[in-house]
Write a protein that binds this DNA or RNA. Structure first.
Lengths: 223, 223
DNA sequence: AAAGAATCTGGACAGGTGTCAAGAATTCCT
DNA sequence: AGGAATTCTTGACACCTGTCCAGATTCTTT
C-alpha cells in the first residue's frame, strides 16, 4: 500500500493479458475484459456506498461478488486503480440520472419545479451513492491520486447545473448574474446539507432542499 | 475496532484513574488529566489534518508527540473517543477564528468585505484543518458515532453565518429572504468548492471565493 | 525518606490489509 | 478432441491496526 500510490497510472487498462491476434478475436476479448471490469466496479461501488472509503477492503468488495478476492488484482492494477474506475462508473450513473431530470420543460416555472423535485428525489433515492461522492471528494483533498478524476466529475456536474441555470434564464427572459462555478457551488452546498440531514433522520430534509432550490434559481438572475 | 463503536460514550472522561480524595487535590489532578488530554488531542488534530481520517493511526498520532502510543489509551477510551475529542477541539479553534472575522464593522459594505476576505484568508491559512472538517462531515454520513458532534459543530457554524447575514441585513436596511440553514449551506458550498481548488493548486481559488461571497450577501436580501 | 498513587513505556496479541504467485478450472480455437 | 490461452481460486507474505497489560518511571503525599 505504501508505494502503490506511485504506480504509473497513465494507462487505463493494465494490459488485457494476452490477445494480440486476429482483430475480431482481440476485440471480443478486450470487450469481455472491460465488461467484467465494469461488473466488478459496480460491485465495488455498492460496497463503497455502504461502508465508505475508509472502511472498504478488497475482500469485502469481493464478497459482494460471485468471485474471490484474488480476481480483483487480475482486473485492476491495485486498489487505487479499482476505486478510480469505480468513481468514473459513478459519474456515468450520476450524469445519466441528472439528464433525466433535465426532461424538457417549456416554462421557467416548470423547469424550476422539475429540477428542484429531481434534486430532492435523487438525494433520497441515491443517498448512499451521493455520500460516497462527498467522501471521495474529501479524500481527493488528501490523496492527489484521486484529484484529477474528482475534478473531472465535478466539472461535469457543474456543466449540468449550468445547463439548467441557463435554460431557466432563457425561459424566464432574465439575465444571469453568476459564473458557472458559483452556481454549482451553491446548489452543491444545499444538496450536501440536505443529504447529511436526511441521512441523520431529519424527515423534512428533502422537502427543504426542494424549496431552497426553488428559491435559488431566481436569485441567480435579474430582469 | 469492531465493537469499539458500541462503547458507552455518555461519560466524557473515561474515569480519571484514581483521585477521589481531598477536593483541592482531586480538582488539580482532574485539571492535569484534562490538560494532557487536550494536548494529545491537539497533536492528533495536526496528524488528522495532514493525513485525513482514513490514513491516520494511533501510532502515527503518537509520533507527533513526546509520548509512546500506549499513552493514548490511558487518556482516551478508544480511537473514536479520541477523534471526537479532536473534532470538538477543532470547533473551538474554528469558531474562535470566525469570531475574529466578525470584528465590528459599521457599514454593510465593510462587513461584507471583511467577511469575504476573512473566509478567503482562513481557507488559505487553515486549509488542512478545513479539509479535515469536510472529511469528518463525510465520515459522519457513514459512521453514526460521529454524527451528533458533527451536527453540533455544523449548527455552531450556521449560527456564526447567521450572525453575519443578519448583521449585514440590519446595516444595509434590507430584509432577509432565506432561512439560516439555507444561507449557511450556500456559503459552505462556496467555501468547500474554493478549498478543493486551492488545494489542487488553482491560484485564483481564494480570490474567487472572496468575490463570490461578496455577491452572495446581497442576494440573500431584498429592499 | 518512604510509600503509594499517577503516569508512561514497550512489547505482545489477534485480526485485518494489499499484494502476489502457483496452480486449478474454464473457455476458446483449430 | 486436444492444446493453448484465459480466467479464477487459494493460500501465503509482510505489514499495519486497535487494544491491552505488566512493569518501569515519575510525581505526590505523609
Amino acid at each position: 500500500m505504501t508505494n502503490a500510490l506511485n504506480v504509473d497510472r497513465t494507462a487505463d487498462v493494465p494490459v488485457p493479458p494476452g490477445p494480440a491476434k486476429a482483430d475480431r478475436v482481440s476485440r471480443r476479448q478486450v470487450d469481455k475484459f472491460a465488461q467484467r471490469r465494469d461488473q466488478l466496479a459496480a460491485a465495488a461501488l455498492q460496497t463503497l456506498a455502504e461502508l465508505g472509503y475508509a472502511r472498504t477492503s478488497l475482500r469485502e468488495i469481493a464478497q459482494n461478488t460471485d468471485f474471490s478476492h484474488g480476481v480483483l488484482h487480475y482486473y485492476f492494477a491495485d486498489k487505487v486503480d479499482l476505486i478510480i474506475h469505480c468513481v468514473k462508473h459513478y459519474k456515468a450513473i450520476c450524469v445519466q440520472r441528472y439528464d433525466e431530470i433535465l426532461a424538457a420543460s417549456d416554462t421557467a416555472d416548470a423547469l424550476a419545479e422539475g429540477f428542484a423535485a429531481g434534486l430532492a428525489r435523487t438525494a433520497g433515492e441515491d443517498a448512499t451513492l451521493h455520500r460516497l461522492w462527498y467522501d471521495m471528494r474529501s479524500q481527493s483533498m488528501f490523496e492527489p491520486a484521486f484529484r484529477a478524476d474528482v475534478l473531472e466529475i465535478d466539472d461535469s456536474l457543474q456543466r449540468m447545473i449550468w445547463r439548467v441555470v441557463t435554460g431557466y434564464a432563457e425561459l424566464s427572459g432574465r439575465a444571469l448574474t453568476v459564473a458557472p462555478a458559483t452556481a454549482y457551488a451553491m446548489f452543491d452546498g444545499l444538496f450536501q446539507h440536505a443529504l447529511l440531514r436526511h441521512l441523520s433522520g431529519a424527515p423534512d430534509a428533502l422537502d427543504t432542499l426542494r424549496a431552497e432550490s426553488l428559491t435559488l434559481l431566481p436569485r441567480l438572475t435579474r430582469d
